[in-house]
């Protein structure tokens, strides 16, 4: 009986979680389709720049790093250092990613 009870508890918590986060779940599902649709017809020449551009876009994780950093208490050094490294790494991803992509694509422009 105890196990049954736990089971229904678990099911319930999963269901509540889904209904609490339904907005996010909708976004996730729609974005999966958008992501697939948007690059569906990319010519193979652009595979690498596209990969590199997408690489820069997931650098948006920097926002999380900034939040972690900004929330850390000023005397908690472990949290500060974790956040600081996260910000550096995230920035590297964003800035490096966009610059490298731009350099690749620069070569594609038609010269007269």
């Amino acid at each position: 009986m105890v196990i049954d009870h736990q089971k229904t508890d678990f099911m319930e918590s999963v269901l509540t979680w889904i209904s609490e986060n339904q907005q996010i779940i909708y976004i996730v599902i729609l974005m999966i389709f958008v992501g697939i649709e948007v690059i569906g017809r990319v010519p193979s020449v652009l595979h690498t720049p596209l990969m590199s551009g997408a690489n820069a876009i997931h650098g948006v994780v920097i926002i999380g790093a900034i939040i972690v950093m900004g929330k850390a208490e000023t005397h908690n050094y472990l949290a500060l250092i974790l956040g600081f490294f996260a910000v550096i790494l995230g920035t590297l991803n964003v800035v490096g990613g966009f610059v490298v992509t731009d350099r690749m694509l620069e070569m594609f422009k038609k010269k007269k």
Partner: peptide, 24 residues
């Protein structure tokens, strides 16, 4: 991370790259 902070930009950016990256 987007899920964690309920941050829509991180969520859309991340999932978008996740899906497009897999297709690519």
């Amino acid at each position: 991370g987007g899920f964690l902070y309920n941050n829509k930009a991180m969520l859309t950016g991340g999932i978008l790259v996740g899906a497009a990256g897999t297709l690519l």
